[in-house]
Design a protein around this nucleic acid. Structure first.
Lengths: 244, 244
DNA sequence: TTTTGCCTCACTATTTCTGGGGAGTTGGAA
DNA sequence: TTCCAACTCCCCAGAAATAGTGAGGCAAAA
């Protein structure tokens, strides 16, 4: 029955198996270094993307560059992150938008710190709005890179998937709150707020009093651990509880 | 350099290639039927999950069952959907929570309509909180099923990925609006608002007066075509202009 | 060189939101 | 049956956000 899209071949050395059996985050770091050597590329990186500081990452970049990236807040500038966030399918770095001044400055800085001129990144999304990026980077011409990505893109999707699976499993402090679901009415309220309705309009649309609506918003805010309505809507969106 | 995790083998008949070249949603339906025949399983299904009704789906279930599923609102009861929503990795149906009365009633109804006793489902997440499930179902004993899933799980992850990619590409109404970019300061302001800061806190964090901050918010709101701050943050989030 | 976009600051009046209360019904789960 | 979660409604005062203006400096692009 095996159609062989992802057939395990002898020469892989069971890398995916090893990944599946990883017990600690250190094992991921070892695995990613091993994988880099086998692919014979300059860098492989897997990292989470989130605004709230605490985020996991492993890879083969120069630690100086990683430190600099975090300090400079490059997460908000990096066209790779922005581009991945907007897409589902893997993206080649060449096809991203590098037009802004900040992006070009970032690119220059990155290359100066050893990041390759070529790159291919895979966006990965987990429950509760978890978002991560798996990137492979190398120094070579367009033609070689084209061949490499064409040959390996399916592998890379799988590798990215397994990295994310393990990172989610092993990262402590993940799922402290079991993502308290919103009630149907709360979902409606949050959704309408997210599309720009004022409280009065939402109440009218839902055919309830504004007082009642407020109870829902309060309740949703409490469940989401949000400071205010805007925060609550943002959380509901990024956790995938509402869709606009 | 190909490590062969996802090596294309001759006997696949280039099914993933065909999937990549699909031009219409009909092609997905053809592809999923073809895939079912090749895997020699009872059913394959790919469908979106979203609160707002409109959702795409294709598969080999009895149309009567699909109709019934939608009418009865099984989307909110189905342990497969709920389980997938909470996990990242594929799940075997046996490992889900079927304990509630509603779930057991649903299961009975499903089997009565031709759904297999065994199943394996893969959650898939795209941008803007998009969420879909790719399921394979069959009638057999636990041992055979174990062998099937063990053999094909990596294939299935890839197939699910490609189905989602195509569905996102082909489904109308998903055309991202020409997202007018925000200035760096506007991005900072929107991001801080999205993580729950009040205007006063944002202004302090950015070391600017609240008056100035207001100008950014207004400007961002105008660029995003938003009615109010909450709306603006929601749009910035779902267009991937900011990351929380 | 002119225009355009970005960053910075200010005022006033009005509308909207938030944070405290309290209270009743219904339907499903333990 | 009892309990709980969800849904509905009400009051009030203070905090926050919005709408309508205004202005100047600076840097890059046309």
């Amino acid at each position: 029955m095996n159609l062989g899209f992802a057939a395990e071949m002898p020469e892989t050395g069971g890398l995916l198996e090893r990944l599946e059996e990883a017990q600690r985050l250190d094992d991921l770091q070892t695995a990613i270094e091993d994988l880099r050597d086998r692919y014979r590329v300059d860098h492989l990186v897997y990292h989470w993307v989130s605004a709230n500081g605490t985020q996991y990452g492993c890879g083969t970049y120069d630690p100086v560059w990683v430190q600099r990236y975090l300090e400079k807040g490059y997460l908000r500038i990096d066209p790779v992150v922005i581009g991945c966030y907007q897409h589902f399918h893997p993206v080649d770095w060449k096809r991203l938008d590098w037009s802004s001044k900040a992006a070009r400055a970032f690119q220059k800085d990155a290359i100066a710190h050893g990041v390759g001129n070529q790159g291919y990144s895979i966006p990965i999304r987990g429950p509760n709005g978890q978002f991560a990026v798996f990137s492979v980077s190398h120094n070579c011409d367009d033609e070689d890179w084209e061949e490499f990505t064409e040959t390996n893109r399916r592998d890379l999707i799988l590798v990215a998937h397994y990295f994310n699976q393990k990172a989610l499993e092993l990262e402590p402090g993940r799922t402290p709150e079991p993502a308290q679901p919103l009630s149907p009415r709360e979902v409606e309220a949050m959704t309408l707020l997210a599309v720009g309705y004022s409280r009065a309009q939402v109440a009218e649309t839902l055919s309830i009093s504004e007082h009642t609506l407020r109870v829902y918003i309060e309740s949703a805010r409490y469940k989401l651990g949000a400071m205010n309505t805007t925060h609550a809507v943002a959380r509901a969106l990024s956790r995938g509880l509402i869709v606009v």
